[in-house]
Amino acid sequence: MSRDRKVLIFGGLALAAFGMFYGLHYALFVEHQTLDQLGGSLATAFVSAAERKLPESRAALDRYAAIRYDYVRQVDVHSHWIGLAMLMIVFGAAFDRVAFSGSIKFWIALALTIGAIVFPLGVILQTVSHGSALASALAILGSGLVIMALAATALGFARQGAPGGA
């Protein structure tokens, strides 16, 4: 088995398992509590407004926005890690059909693997420090790597079908 396929298949399987562990941990220990806090803070904002306690209402609304910011990213990380892992395994199975040299295919596989790890990692780090430039940079770098690797793979598949392709 070529290096690029090993990287994609084993990297994908490991990432899928990790994404599932993360999802299980999140579902057991975080999600229910987060959802309770999310609903509770929004309800508190309305109840405080009904009691004409407007500063408390605004504070609860801010809390709601912060919890929602985290919740969206925590769920996104789970789905993106597993989704990207599946993509890597699928590509690993078909990478022989990418009509590039072995070294180029290896770099494409490596870029996809690094992007698949780093992109969701950057997203989850945004919850540690809201508005963190480093976390956003990681997410952008990771998604850029994934997109470039995808474009290169699509080109490789297209070259295979073209006259003179592999």
């Binding site: 993509l87 998604s143 997109i147 995808l150 474009a151 793979t153 699509a154 598949f157 297209a158 295979q160």
Partner: peptide, 30 residues
């Protein structure tokens, strides 16, 4: 070939759209 190539293009389009959404809409909508 149609399924493999077409599928890759669909995934690529989805990622490009996702990147555009995250950059343009995610924070604005929040």
């Amino acid at each position: 070939r149609a399924l493999l190539g077409g599928g890759t293009v669909l995934v690529l389009l989805g990622f490009l759209y996702g990147a555009w959404y995250a950059g343009k809409n995610l924070y604005e909508q929040e």
